[in-house]
């Protein structure tokens, strides 16, 4: 049942400019509702289309906790289970709405050694047909493999 990739990044080979494998999330009403309720966010705009449209949105839309969750997943699917996410800093834009795939792209913008960890900054973008849903940076720390 696991869909996690097994290709864990080797910290010593990560370099600025490295691209993360792009990921397209097929956003549906179910995806939005599942993420909202799993994060205990019962705001009607995240499960009730009429309510959301009454507030001027084009449809029900993804809540911010789920957006952060998908950004985190996008990065750790690449960085592997040893990665510790240190920060997720995003600017929020276009709503993530049903039937518009959310396309995640990212690349390494900075990396440096800090003690026994390699600290890696990834610049990410999640966009749909409306525009940029989330743009920003994620910083992860990976344990450096013992030498020798």
């Amino acid at each position: 049942m696991t869909t996690a990739r097994s290709d864990v990044q080797r910290p010593s080979t990560i370099a600025e400019g490295d691209e993360l494998p792009p990921f397209a999330l097929a956003v549906t009403s179910t995806v939005i509702v599942a993420g909202a309720i799993a994060s205990r966010d019962f705001m009607p705009a995240h499960h009730d289309r009429q309510f959301a449209m009454g507030q001027g949105a084009p449809d029900m839309f993804m809540n911010i906790m789920a957006t952060n969750g998908y950004v985190s997943r996008f990065v750790t699917d690449w960085a592997g289970p040893e990665a510790m996410v240190r920060s997720i800093k995003i600017r929020l834009g276009a709503p993530a709405v049903p039937d518009q795939p959310l396309r995640f792209t990212g690349h390494v913008t900075q990396t440096h050694r800090e003690g026994n960890e390699q600290v890696v900054e990834i610049t990410i973008r999640a966009a749909n047909e409306i525009g940029d849903h989330a743009t920003g940076t994620v910083v992860v720390a990976l344990p450096v493999e013992p030498s020798g």
Binding site: M1, T2, T3, G35, A38, A66, S72, R73, T76, E82
Partner: peptide
Amino acid sequence: HWVDALDDRNPAYLDEDGTATTR
């Protein structure tokens, strides 16, 4: 609930195979 809702299969979050060998 979260792992299933977001389909995030990072093994650090659930030790379903009893193989929690992360740091």
